[in-house]
Design a protein around this nucleic acid. Structure first.
Lengths: 335, 335
DNA sequence: CAATGGCTCGCAACCGTTTTCGTAAATAAA
DNA sequence: TTTATTTACGAAAACGGTTGCGAGCCATTG
């Protein structure tokens, strides 16, 4: 902890503490001459103001929280970059919390956020979350909340997402168009709106094409560890799908590995398309058709919105909804 | 900001502020009966202590900073997970800063860290950094610093790295063993110790094998945007390498793409090995031989060390040095 | 010359918690 | 009963900045 504080400066310059403070904040009450002297001494002594004292008095922390389910996914890495890029320009600090997909963790984290530690919260909810109380409480404490990527229904606040339904639709359509008759949708949660939206899009496309419900396979791989095994068993089942949509990035590797092991050829025997931001997609074997989320942009937009809510309390976040479309990039896995 | 503070509790219970504070901290001075009443009211009113007031008074923030060059890389995602996992158990908060590989940014960030905002700093230095003053200043302020992954010479503090020299050596050896005569090492910085170590290992192996300096190609792709073009020109040069070591993960995709475009077959025409934590490595075309850094473990070890330094000032961080070995996984790209 | 007003600066309260120290009451020891 | 000792709590001073207000000083104006 730095031992040079405002009082030290004041003593050395024979000025009062308040004068120093005002000089440092460039107040009009202080003469240019004094300001210069203060600044000079401050930099010479390496003075750095104590953020906690300041936050306590001003009731602003200049800090935001980012609550994520995990950062293993490429998507969140990029989103963090986007968030950070705007936080930087605003002079804000960024606290990162991980819920590990657990509702209980998420709740604890948000309780802490209600303490005044942060001025706002960006959150992508855990797959377990189905309540909204913990989030409403934040709002009750006048702490703006913005959802990004994964949203939660039943809460009135800003959200930044991508066009998940449309992309689910597009993905399914592509498979159909390429000749698939029994496409499968592989999901990891039965409750996450994000996945439900993608799935609804998938089903809508199949319905439109007149494919009976019985041939509309929705498969859940809820467990991270046994994902490979689960996928293998899907691929070995008697009604093996001839097309597959990986609803999230981490499904891709197990799928490719399982196909390889089972001698199922992509795209000949099964066509694959994935929701992913993998930059290795073009060099996979075969190159993977992806629906790429604009992760960086989503993070950036969410942060921008949050700061609007923080900076002007008149700004009503509750009605804000930004949708940034993903892009479908066709590659050989759906040839 | 929560409006219910200690004073509110005190008024409601007809007790003094200090009694409440002590009760909440479970002090022996307070009777069990009173404690229970206080606790009950606190939870009923959703009281959350103001962290800034507490930090100000106690002179510790229960927060650490993690300073990274960028999070686009998979390595840092995993490292953050490792760090977070131990911070969580210790009840610490994690601030993330990005230097974007710029020394100036890094300096600014560390100056801020000297304010008492954090109790310790984990840092992976930017590729531009070649000075140590800004880090020494932190130490001067009694803020423990631990390097991870990327270290900086000339500073006495703890560091957690992987065995970069050995891995460079191993990588080169593997290429030689597989029949390469003109292996190239692709780097992104001429100053980062991490990359220098890997390169030195590379050179050592080649020297040992009696390969003349002229056939020891070290190539630098310093610019992120033109990487693809640079790599292509390497592959088109007259002394085209027959083996290639990607010193960092982000080199992989451009290399594969360039080879594909130029009809250079991996591993037939050129063997490729990469320092990477990509989990898509086994499904690339061809599957990529990697040297995988134990990113999670490095983050975890670094954080553990940092907390040792934070919690007991008697613990001397300066001599600590942890090396967690990477693992070489052979795949078809070096067949 | 007195009054007015603009410039600078200092005083002191305040932000919410922690912690030292003092003290009254209750209990134990003498 | 008197004297220690413990128990349970309160008063007040920190922690380091911020900020409203008052005050002294000089210059301008009527």
């Amino acid at each position: 902890m730095s031992k040079v504080n405002i009082k030290v400066l004041a003593d050395q310059l024979q000025l009062s503490v308040s004068t120093i403070s005002k000089a440092l904040r460039d107040s009009y009450e202080i003469s240019d001459e004094t300001k210069k002297k203060v600044l000079e001494l401050a930099t010479r002594l390496n003075y750095v103001p104590n953020p906690y004292a300041s936050s306590l008095r001003r009731k602003k922390s200049k800090t935001i929280a980012v609550v994520l389910p995990e950062v293993a996914d490429n998507f969140f890495s990029l989103a963090i970059n986007g968030i950070q890029s705007v936080a930087e320009t605003k002079g804000y600090h960024v606290l990162i919390y991980l819920s590990h997909e657990k509702f209980a963790n998420e709740k604890t984290i948000l309780e802490d956020c209600a303490s005044g530690r942060v001025d706002g919260v960006l959150i992508s909810i855990s797959s377990e979350t189905n309540s909204a109380d913990h989030i409403n409480r934040l709002q009750g404490n006048n702490i703006p909340v913005v959802f990004f990527d994964r949203e939660q229904e039943g809460i009135e606040t800003a959200r930044v997402t991508t066009n998940d339904f449309d992309c689910g639709f597009m993905a399914a359509n592509l498979l159909l168009q390429k000749g698939c008759h029994k496409p499968a949708f592989v999901s990891i949660s039965e409750s996450l709106p994000l996945l439900l939206n993608r799935m609804e899009g998938f089903k809508a496309a199949l319905n439109k094409a007149g494919i009976p419900e019985t041939d509309q396979q929705i498969v859940y791989c809820t467990d991270n560890d046994s994902m490979y095994k689960q996928i293998k068993s899907i691929l070995q089942s008697e009604h093996r799908p001839d097309g597959l949509i990986a609803s999230v990035e981490k499904i891709v590797t197990p799928v490719y590995l399982a196909c390889h092991e089972l001698n199922i050829r992509i795209p000949h025997d099964i066509k694959v398309i994935a929701f992913a931001t993998l930059d290795t997609a073009p060099i996979l074997n075969p190159p993977l058709t992806t629906i790429t989320q604009p992760a960086f942009e989503i993070g950036k937009a969410a942060a921008t919105l949050l700061f609007k809510g923080i900076e002007k309390s008149s700004f009503d976040l509750r009605k804000e909804k930004v949708v940034i479309p993903s892009v479908l990039i066709e590659r050989e896995s759906t040839l």
